[in-house]
Computed example of a mutant assay.
Amino acid sequence: MRSFHALIIVSCLLFLVAGAGAEPTVAPGYTLETFNTPGAAFAGVSRDGGGLLVSDLESGRLYRRGTDGKLVAFGPVFPHGLDVIGDPTGPYRVVRVGDVLVVAQGWTPVNSDEGPLDHALVAIDAAGQARVISSDFWNPFDFIVAGGTYYVIDSARNSVERVQADGRKSTLMAFRRMGEAAAALRSLSPTEFAEGNSYEVDAVPTGIALRDGRLYIALFGGFPFLAGAGKIVSIPAAGDASKPQLDVKGLNAPVGIAFDNYGEMLVLEHGTYNQKEGFRKGSGRLLKLNKLTPDRKIILDGLTRPVSVLVWDERRLVVSDLGGNLHLLTRESAR
């Protein structure tokens, strides 16, 4: 806990507070400190003892933030650049697994030749050497590890993959396309989408979390990324996963999911989409869902293109975004 306080205090001196435009806002009872690294595009965040692991899509580097608050790069430079729709691709996630760090590396950038680390789950040893666990993915966006088994989200294949430590892989769940009513699509293009018809979009799974033997998966929803079309579904980590359970609906492009120390679900929404602007500035938010009621509470609002949420401890959360921001959210008092 002390290391987290030191990280915040020193970071105030070392990093610029995110500048132009409206600042994110927090719910009553929380405080927020936002730190910006110019030119970065932060994606995955995870805890490594008292330090914070961060992946940067802009540089293809992994960073560790220790108790002195400094970002220190380590490991290889991963492939990075823009994907086929113009979004950054590179090392999406980095997580400590025993004596190695495991990275989910995205698909090949459009202007690059395919390399051995592309679209792969990669282990980095203490010497910084990379070993590919499996590259049999299209776009591995997120993963968790439980009991020595990796559960990997392949966003491009719309699937959850189960991967053993030796690289053996099987598909746990492949999501069907999701139907959308033409009425919602007509707001985007009244002439293209006729009344009375329905349309299907890819499910696009993104975030994943494990709770009480079930895997919870955020379904972002494919283009045109309709407001309210996102969902959270769950499947058993072991056993029959053929029928996912719908847990939450009506979300705006959910990209990250976690559970706090009290068992309440946290959902990070990437935001709402406009065909002219893309994902709107300030439309991302972090929701807390009551586990006993359908109540949803916005605890962090006004985010622009957030990617990951990390539960640091019973009071603290970390949220990353593609603008190079780390948002450190603290509840003022424990329950």
Rank of each mutant, 00 (worst) to 15 (best):
M1L: 12
R2M: 14
S3V: 13
F4V: 09
L7I: 11
C12S: 13
L14Y: 12
V17H: 13
G21H: 12
E23Q: 14
P24I: 06
A27P: 02
G29P: 13
T34C: 03
P38N: 10
A43L: 08
G44L: 04
V45F: 03
G49S: 13
E58Q: 12
R64G: 07
G66D: 09
G66P: 01
T67C: 10
D68A: 13
D68C: 13
K70Q: 11
A73Q: 03
P79V: 13
P79L: 12
H80T: 07
D83T: 01
G86P: 12
T89M: 06
G90E: 00
V94A: 09
L101I: 02
A104M: 02
Q105P: 01
G106T: 03
W107Y: 04
T108S: 03
V110H: 05
N111I: 05
S112V: 13
P116W: 03
H119M: 02
A120R: 04
V122R: 02
V122C: 05
I124K: 00
A126S: 09
Q129K: 14
A130E: 01
S135C: 02
S135Y: 00
W138L: 14
P140V: 04
D142Y: 05
F143K: 05
T149S: 06
S155G: 05
N158E: 08
S159M: 13
V163C: 00
A165I: 07
K169L: 11
K169V: 05
L172P: 07
M173N: 12
A174D: 10
F175P: 06
R176C: 00
M178Q: 15
A184W: 10
L185P: 01
T191L: 11
F193G: 04
A194V: 09
E195N: 13
N197H: 14
Y199Q: 07
Y199P: 01
P205N: 07
L210E: 02
R211D: 04
G213I: 03
L215G: 04
Y216K: 04
F220Q: 03
F220G: 00
F225K: 02
F225D: 05
A227K: 15
A227L: 15
A229E: 07
A237K: 08
K243P: 08
D247N: 10
L251A: 10
G256D: 10
I257N: 04
A258L: 11
Y262M: 14
L266P: 13
L268I: 15
L268S: 10
T272G: 08
K276W: 14
E277Q: 09
G282M: 10
L289I: 07
L289W: 04
N290G: 07
L292F: 14
P294V: 11
R296G: 10
I299H: 01
L300C: 06
L300G: 05
D301S: 11
D301E: 13
G302D: 00
L303G: 09
T304H: 00
V307K: 14
W312Y: 10
D313E: 08
R315W: 03
R315E: 11
R316K: 06
S320V: 01
D321C: 05
D321M: 00
G323I: 02
G324P: 08
N325D: 03
L326R: 06
H327M: 11
T330W: 05
E332N: 07
A334Q: 15
A334G: 12
R335F: 03
